[in-house]
């Protein structure tokens, strides 16, 4: 009798090696996304938007129809796609410079219109691919290549809490923040992605999942230490939890 397979690469993830730095959260998050696509049986019904930045070549790894989008414009491109194909699952994958800086208008307005798609937002507190510049999510005093003396509230402003901000919009159905820095967080991340996509497929509306992820290379930390840094420090600025869930009342983290 053949042994039972209890763990394997998701079918919707291509046979290709991720290009990400060792320990980077992108690979974990994209695996989770593809596991959910497999488990819901929607690979042939999904259209994803690849972001700019480190995950720009998402289509090299995700075996689904994909469009690129310009920096910040993924929610607008997704709006066009979803309005043409309301029966398809549309997944928007963006980082923090993309979503919370140059694409803030597109992000807020897509959420405010209640576009029926799911946004996976990877927050690693900096612009990763361009070499670790300050993002809207960069912590106060965090040193980046464009905040060499640390981010200052005076002049640079404060880290923007997107999950909380999006949750204030009446058309948003689900907004949560999670992390892939530990096992518990990884399990929750998958649960929230699945919840958002199921909500979409039931015609439920806009869902937003913010995921705290490490950028060990630009933070100049080994991956394990970078993940510890998220759990011990970053969550104090970006608390984990569900900020909006119209299917239930506000739940625990």
């Amino acid at each position: 009798m053949a042994p039972e397979v209890i763990f394997k690469k998701p079918d919707s993830l291509r046979e290709k090696i991720f290009p990400y730095c060792p320990g980077c959260g992108h690979g974990v998050i994209q695996r989770l996304m593809c596991e959910v696509i497999d488990e819901l049986g929607i690979r042939e019904n999904t259209i994803a938007i690849a972001p700019v930045g480190c995950a720009v070549c998402g289509y090299d790894y995700w075996d689904v129809d994909v469009s690129e989008a310009a920096h910040g414009r993924a929610p607008a491109v997704a709006t066009g796609i979803k309005r043409v194909h309301p029966d398809k699952t549309v997944i928007v994958y963006q980082g923090d410079g993309d979503l919370a800086s140059i694409g803030m208008a597109e992000t807020i307005h897509a959420a405010n219109r209640g576009e029926n798609f799911t946004v996976i937002f990877v927050n690693n507190t900096n612009y990763g691919m361009t070499g670790g510049q300050m993002a809207p999510t960069t912590l106060l005093n965090q040193v980046t290549t464009t905040s060499p003396c640390g981010r200052s509230a005076h002049g640079d402003g404060f880290p923007i809490r997107m999950a909380e901000l999006i949750a204030t919009l009446p058309a948003c159905q689900f907004s949560a923040r999670t992390t892939v820095a530990d096992v518990n967080g990884i399990l929750k991340t998958k649960k929230y992605i699945k919840k958002g996509i199921k909500l979409q497929n039931e015609g439920g509306g806009y869902s937003f999942i913010e995921i705290l992820s490490n950028c060990g290379t630009n933070w100049a930390m080994p991956a394990v230490k970078a993940n510890e840094y998220i759990v011990e420090n970053i969550v104090k600025v970006f608390p984990l939890g569900i900020y909006k869930d119209t299917t239930q009342e506000k739940g625990e983290a």
């Binding site: 259209i47 469009s67 989008a69 310009a70 414009r73 607008a76 491109v77 997704a78 709006t79 066009g80 796609i81 979803k82 309005r83 043409v84 194909h85 208008a105 597109e106 807020i108 307005h109 219109r113």
Partner: peptide, 26 residues
């Protein structure tokens, strides 16, 4: 059909890109 008043011309042209990518006349 679908009419969306975009939040800006920047958003409008990118919505056009999405709908065009999806195969529609837009």
């Amino acid at each position: 059909g679908v009419f969306v008043q975009a939040e800006s011309e920047v958003a409008a042209i990118n919505m056009v890109m999405g709908a065009a990518a999806a195969g529609a006349r837009v």
